[in-house]
């Protein structure tokens, strides 16, 4: 049982919670995630990234977007309630070293998992440029936290309601084009379609690009194979081999298809797919 210590609404459908989990706090590293259930008997197991941890309080921070059944139920939990199932930390920690110049790209809710990684990269001595993208001003989260870490912060909104108008791939391309700003490493976390186009953007410049994959999961320990993705010529399990992989090798199209496995069963998925289509259309337009 893990008690909820704090709950806060970050934007229309994004929540932040701090949950008591002292064992996880002790072991967790940037890039790792947990799996939780809102009901022990019948609940689904959903993965969420550990966005931060507080050692004094013994808590981890979760930031989640309400997209379907379990995240809706989770958003109805309040301070003092216990989460019946919480397990972690899972996945491999992000490989942190001093690469030199790094660019961290976060799309939508992806800014949450990006935050601890950007923090660790900065602490390792990197020069950190952060690009945050969202559909509109209301959906931008963790702006202040990111500003505190980044040497340079760029914000993009699809509708131009805040920062630059356009997609995150535009400033990313500019940074790659200019020898003086060309990154030594890019890490992109967000909707699969965004990670796909970030990877396509950096590829011609040969800039190593890591992505953090959010596949469907069940156990999170390498037992079910539900989280498998094609990476180069290999099949990898995101929960034990990832969640981070070389974006230039990931087969995003297959991953996106697999994410919609239960489409029709989960009506929400329609919404997500439309978002993907919009993004794709916009990218096409820009070309």
């Amino acid at each position: 049982m893990a008690k909820i210590l704090h709950k806060e609404k970050l934007s229309a459908d994004v929540y932040l919670m701090r949950v008591h989990a002292p064992l996880i706090v002790e072991e967790r590293k940037a890039g790792q995630f947990i799996i939780l259930q809102t009901d022990e008997e019948f609940g689904e197991r959903i993965p969420l990234t550990i966005a931060d941890a507080n050692e004094d309080e013994g808590s981890i921070t979760l930031i989640f977007q309400v997209v379907g059944k379990t995240t809706t139920e989770l958003s109805q939990f309040n301070v003092g309630d216990d989460l019946p199932v919480l397990v972690g930390p899972l996945g491999k920690p992000t490989h942190i070293e001093n690469f030199g110049k790094v660019v961290c790209v976060g799309g939508g809710i992806g800014v949450a998992p990006l935050h601890p990684i950007a923090q660790a990269l900065r602490a390792a001595g990197n020069e950190v440029t952060t690009i945050i993208g969202a559909r509109n001003k209301e959906l931008i989260i963790l702006e202040d936290e990111m500003r505190a870490i980044a040497d340079n912060l760029i914000i993009c909104t699809d509708d131009g309601s805040f920062g630059r108008k356009g997609l995150v791939t535009a400033p990313l391309k500019e940074l790659c084009e200019n020898e003086a700003t060309k990154p030594d490493m890019v890490i992109a976390i967000g909707p699969p379609i965004m990670m796909k186009f970030c990877s396509l953007t950096t590829k011609p410049y040969g800039v190593f690009t890591q992505v953090s994959l959010n596949t469907i999961m069940v156990d999170g320990t390498g037992m079910c194979g539900g989280c498998r993705v094609n990476v180069g010529s290999d099949v990898k399990f995101v929960c034990v081999d990832g969640p981070e992989f070389d974006g230039h090798l990931v087969n995003f199209d297959n991953m996106m298809a697999r994410l919609s496995s239960y489409k029709g069963i989960e009506t929400e998925s329609l919404h997500k797919c439309n978002v993907d289509k919009e993004f794709e259309a916009k990218v096409e337009e820009k070309k």
Binding site: V218, M223, C224, G225, G226, R228, V229, N230, V235, N254, A257, R258, S260, S261
Partner: peptide
């Protein structure tokens, strides 16, 4: 890896 291929475990 097509949608609809499962391991027995899953």
């Amino acid at each position: 890896n097509l949608v609809g291929v499962f391991s027995a475990n899953e």
